[in-house]
């Protein structure tokens, strides 16, 4: 065994010598990402359900069942108010919800378990990598899932509604920028929630955080439609989901009223920085005694 051990110690030398700290960080980071991909691949079925169920049911009920009901339009106040096709309003909104929800499901919920009983995050924290990078990896991996979740909404919104969606992309670069910013921001939101909420209270976040930010996130109605209720229109501005849905609205369905793109980008960047800072700080506080 001693012989084997000596050979082994030498064999490890290349990895030690393989270069600078940057290379070391990069490989550790890639390792973490790969681990998450592996686990996601194994849990692909729950992932698909998680990603599809909400937009599918929403579209099915509001854009397929309701229009088929007699007087369905009257039951659907939003579409009446908009004078627009409700499926068109819903497309960007549901994408925003999918993005936000992925951030919660991919970061906040697993973190609750890993910080809670099992402390299984420990081995990843012990990577030869600054601890903040472990938190950043969580955000980026969640962003990847968010983008997939948002992409899934597209075909659903195309096939399910009884009236076609009017989507039109003028500026692809803008759409991609919004998608990426929204996804990374929602990963940061998940990290902030996962590190602030006590693990045993994680079940509460659906009622306390997820529901309010969804329903007050301009998901089911454009922001300008809130003009009649001024206090609410101002109040919802602290909700990052507003900028996600408005951003997607301006990129995908520009025929609907939406905020100014520069304001949307600016606010998304602001929330990204704020939530990343809060999330990473919370993560460090949790793992380093």
């Amino acid at each position: 065994m001693t012989e084997l051990a000596t050979i082994d110690t030498e064999a490890s030398a290349p990895s030690a010598a393989s270069g600078s700290a940057k290379m070391q960080y990069l490989r550790a980071f890639a390792g973490l990402f790969l681990r998450d991909l592996y686990v996601l691949r194994r849990e692909i079925f729950p992932f698909v359900i998680r990603v599809c169920m909400n937009p599918m049911l929403f579209l099915f009920v509001f854009t397929f069942i309701m229009p088929h009901m007699s007087g369905g339009a009257a039951m659907n106040p939003t579409s009446a108010a908009m004078g627009q096709n409700f499926s068109t309003v819903l497309l960007p909104g549901l994408m925003a919800v999918a993005i936000m929800f992925s951030g919660i499901a991919a970061v906040a919920l697993p973190l609750a378990q890993e910080f809670g009983i099992t402390r299984e995050i420990d081995d990843r924290v012990m990577c030869p990598l600054p601890v903040a990078a472990v938190a950043i990896e969580k955000i980026l991996f969640s962003a990847m899932q968010s983008i997939i979740a948002a992409a899934v909404v597209f075909p659903l919104a195309y096939y399910i509604p009884s009236t076609p969606v009017v989507a039109h992309v003028d500026n692809w670069a803008y759409l991609i920028a919004i998608l990426i910013l929204a996804s990374v921001t929602s990963g940061a939101l998940g990290l902030t929630i996962g590190t602030t909420v006590e693990p045993k209270q994680i079940g509460l976040i659906f009622g306390v955080v997820v529901m309010p930010i969804t329903f007050l996130g301009c998901v089911y109605y454009p922001w300008t439609a809130l003009g009649q209720i001024r206090w609410l229109q101002i109040g919802v501005l602290v909700n990052p989901i507003v900028y996600m849905s408005e951003g997607l609205r301006s990129a995908l369905t520009p025929t609907l009223p939406h905020m100014h793109p520069a304001l949307i980008l600016g606010m998304l960047v602001f929330f990204l920085i704020l939530l990343t800072w809060l999330g990473v700080r919370g993560f460090l506080r949790r793992v380093i005694g």
Binding site: A16, M23, Y38
Partner: peptide
């Protein structure tokens, strides 16, 4: 992760 993966990923983390 399985036992194998636990060790395998640990190795990957360390380059």
């Amino acid at each position: 992760c399985t036992i194998y993966e636990n060790i395998h990923f640990h190795c990957l983390f360390f380059g």
